[in-house]
Amino acid sequence: MLREERKKELKKQIFFKSIELFKEYGYDNVTVEKITSSCGIAKGTFFNYFPKKEHVLLYLGNSQNDYLQEIAQKHKDVKIKQQLLLIFKELLSVYLENSDLLKLTLSETIRSALNDESRNIYLFKETVTTLIEEAKTNKTINTRFDSKTIASVLVGIYFNTLIIWSISNDESVDIISIFERQYEVVWEGVEQQLN
C-alpha cells in the first residue's frame, strides 16, 4: 500500500510541476524533457505515469472522479437536493484553489472532451445518476423525470459554469454563485413538476 501511495504522490508532483511550467512558458513551449528535468526524474518515469504530454492536463479529470466518490460518501446522510449541491460546490472549489493553473487544464479538458475525457464525463454522470436513484428509492425525492436525464442536466450546468468562469476576464466572477443560481432553476423544475 505504501508503494501505491508513493506512486500517487509522484504522479501528483509531476502534474503540478507540469502545470506550473505550462503557465510560466506556455503549453507548447514545454517539452517532456523540461518537465522531467524540473521534477528530477527520468523520461521513462514520466512515461510510466503519462503516455503523452497532453495526458498531464487530463489527469485532473481522472483524479476528480476519485474525489467525487469521496465527496459523495461524505455527504451521504444529507437530503438529495443539498447533497448534490454540496458535491458540485466542492468540485468547483478545487478550481478556485488553483485558478490560474487550472484554467489551462480546464481548457485542454474541454477541448479533448470527445476523446479521452468522455469516459470521465460518463463516470461523473453515472455517479450523479446513482445518487438520484438512491434518493428515489429512499423516497427523499419524488419525480417523474428520469434519473439519467436529471444527472445529465446537472453535469451540463456544472460544465457550463466552468466554461463561463474560464473565459471570464473578470476576477470577481464567483464560480460557486453561478452554479448555485443555475442549480436552483433546475431543482425548482424537478420539484414543481409534481404539482
Rank of each mutant, 00 (worst) to 15 (best):
A151F: 14
N169S: 07
R144Q: 12
L68A: 13
Q193I: 04
Q13S: 05
E184S: 12
F50T: 03
S99F: 03
T161I: 15
Q69H: 15
I41F: 00
T129N: 07
Q13W: 07
T149K: 12
T161W: 12
R111S: 09
D66A: 06
Y25K: 15
R119E: 12
K76D: 11
E180H: 05
E70G: 00
F15I: 01
K17L: 06
L92R: 10
L92W: 08
D100N: 13
V56R: 13
N195V: 14
L102D: 00
K53W: 06
N160D: 13
I41Y: 03
T31S: 15
L154M: 14
D66F: 10
T31C: 02
V155T: 15
I110R: 04
Q83H: 13
I14T: 04
S18M: 06
F179K: 08
V190C: 11
Q182A: 08
E191H: 09
E134N: 15
K89W: 04
E191G: 07
I14W: 10
S107A: 08
S172P: 10
T140P: 14
E117A: 00
S63F: 05
R181Q: 13
V78P: 06
E133S: 04
F159Y: 09
A42T: 02
I141M: 13
I178F: 04
K12F: 01
L21I: 01
Y59S: 11
L57H: 06
W165M: 05
E117H: 00
S118P: 11
Q192H: 15
T140I: 13
R6V: 00
I41M: 01
Y183D: 08
D116Y: 04
K89V: 10
F124T: 04
R144F: 03
K17E: 06
D146F: 00
L58C: 08
Q82K: 14
N169W: 03
Q64K: 15
L58T: 00
Y158Q: 08
R181G: 01
N169G: 13
Y27I: 11
Y67I: 10
